[in-house]
Amino acid sequence: MDCRPVPSREEIFAALEKKQGSVATAKLQAATVAICGLGGLGSNIAISLARSGIGKLILIDFDTVDITNLHRQQYKASQVGLPKASALLENLKEIAPYVQYEVHNEKVTAENAVRLLEDADIVCEAFDRADAKAMLVDVVLEQFPQKTLVAASGMAGFDSGNAILTRKVTGRFYLCGDGKSDVDQDIGLTAPRVMLCAAHQALTVIRLILGEKDA
């Protein structure tokens, strides 16, 4: 392991201000975002938001890193078998050491969602199963009238990336993806297409935090 010194908090913050502007950087610094599911969507969303200087990330997944995850999820070959929550934390701390991280190695359910998500301003749904996605949308929109949810549906297969969009379903519910490509149809998943959808989600989160008027 390389032990070269990392830049200070002040140096990283100054660099973020240089690239994003001081107003945006301050707003991002004040925000807390929860990411439910740390697979192809969640691990990529987490890295984008951490790099952007988000104040706090709440990262939740019950699963361990599998060798079949490596082709699209932000884990290393040396992390196969580790819990995703702790493996991602390790990677994020190397990338963005001054973000505050809260990790939960457990499954999000209708019962524990309030405890896990109550501190978040915005919740990202980043599960892989359709039923889990639907459950989380119900729970967040019903139980947290102040929170916004950014969900994803449809990023499987090898269709054009241009089919992946962000849609505002209602005031507090955004949906990214092509809406139809289903992994259960055995069409596969490929890193860039999943990353495109994750990037839509991360960008939507950032735009909401910044109060972009068309977000």
Binding site: G40, F127, A130, G179, D184
Partner: peptide, 10 residues
């Protein structure tokens, strides 16, 4: 009414 039909993958 809007029915959002989720598909799998993530």
């Amino acid at each position: 009414v809007e029915v959002v039909n989720f598909v799998g993958g993530g």
